[in-house]
Design a protein around this nucleic acid. Structure first.
Lengths: 258, 258
DNA sequence: CGTCCTATTGAAATTCTTCAACACTCGTGG
DNA sequence: CCACGAGTGTTGAAGAATTTCAATAGGACG
């Protein structure tokens, strides 16, 4: 397992103002953490946070670094603090399929199974906060409601996987690319209402990753992107910066039901 | 929700021999049940089984009947006792993708969400044992370890969905069809070791369903089946009866990694 | 400045789909 | 008992979508 600390950020003494009276109970490492109110951490009591924080390690992975290799023994879970992680599978001849994209503050790691059947790789630079599996399992024994949180994340991932099966199996190349952009646009700014336009963002993946996500070749992805650009549904600068003037138009290009 | 009883089998007084001293505690309906030692029921104590059985209803669906429609309010969970259920999604223009196949004794129903985003339909004649969502939720509150069982089924389904994403996105038509046959062959007789050959079974799906599962057309499925037949990897009789003389040869045709 | 990496574009090749014809089975009703 | 039609599955030929191969361009970096 590679989730062990390599480039630890260390614990910084933060000269932060106290936000509320309970802040003193919140561990120092957690106080300024982006994931503090989200994901797993968002539902932990100050006591639980304190316990967990004794075992956490912050790690930075740079782009294209592997967090977990296929078949590897996995001993730690992690929360993504920033960046994008891809989960992928390989065929024997090297064909690759991305089976999941994880954004902050997603939980990383397959509960109840020490061997991973997928590879996890940093798509951008990624910061994670990791801790031993056993610690979370101990906490679950004491507070079974934690399992609910993990279960709900698993179910969200299942819903996403099934939605993507629809895209992979039945959509045309142009619908696939539109669906990909819509997915990123909807995830990049979770606060924003999806229907609010315009939306702009940097595509976190390179063309090869988009192709592996959509089950296409990079050439087809490129061609469909220029088609969408020429039709006015999106505009692109520097290969990565996308502006979507009207999300509903993009959504129509996905041909989706809901 | 359609999981309400329609063709109830009723409770039959079983003149069964007592297998062990504890059998008297096992509810009558459960004693001869195929799912008694599997799935959810396999981990329930006699007390829990007794409680749950007060609320269960056995239902029979015939082929192509809908168990749950897209967008429908779902108030019940169910265990599949026999038969095969397909979970599918639709695009606006009617293209369909099957996103999951469930066999006995799989659990049916999306926890923590009342609206279903998929349609569940009987592929063969199907028997289920259903009960109100609230009953299971009450039981979970009393015995949190039950949540673990549900969570594990969700994770199994997630693994399956992701494996299938690989198939949908990156495999050729013939690899897809081989993978489908391998999947059925491996699921049809769970006792049997997968490597044990020959394996024979009836394909539970018609060609249109296979196509919707694989993201192909029925014609392509048909052509690839005859190709596999002519290459000697499988033999088919009556369109449905398949014999696989050597599972490893079929597995090689899937081009899979593991 | 050359090299590596990434992305785009064109033309040919391949795979898969579409359209069309036909075969088989099963049940119904004359 | 046979004819008929609906449902299902196979096969062929033409067409469309996507991939493959190849050439080109731009940016980053030593």
């Amino acid at each position: 397992m590679n989730l062990s600390p390599k480039t630890g950020e260390g614990i910084q003494a933060l000269s932060e103002e106290r936000k509320d009276i309970h802040n003193s109970e919140i561990p120092v490492v957690c106080r300024s953490c982006e994931a503090r109110h989200r994901g797993i951490c968002g539902v932990l009591s100050p006591d639980q946070l304190l316990y967990l924080s004794k075992f956490t390690n912050r790690t930075i992975y740079s782009e294209s670094e592997e967090l977990v290799s296929n078949g590897e023994q996995v001993e730690r879970y992690a929360n993504i603090l920033s960046g994008v992680v891809k989960l992928s599978k390989l065929l024997i001849d090297g064909r690759q399929q991305i089976v999941g994209l994880q954004f902050a503050p997603d939980f990383l790691g397959r509960p109840f199974k020490s061997k991973s059947e997928t590879t996890a790789e940093a798509v951008t630079d990624v910061r994670v906060c990791s801790f031993p599996k056993s610690v979370l399992e101990t906490m679950i024994q004491k507070s079974p409601e934690l399992e609910r949180i993990l279960h709900e994340q698993s179910l969200r991932e299942l819903d996403e996987a099934r939605n993507w099966m629809m895209t992979l199996g039945r959509k045309s190349a142009s619908e696939k690319v539109a669906s990909f952009l819509y997915l990123i646009g909807a995830n990049i700014d979770p606060e924003k209402n999806i229907t609010m336009s315009p939306v702009s963002f940097e595509i976190p993946l390179k063309r090869a990753d988009i192709a592996d996500f959509l089950g296409l070749t990079i050439e087809t992805v490129s061609r469909q992107l220029t088609k969408l650009r020429k039709s006015g549904i999106i505009s692109i600068a520097n290969n990565r910066s996308v502006v979507i003037p009207d999300m509903r138009a993009l959504h129509r290009a996905c041909e989706e039901n809901c």
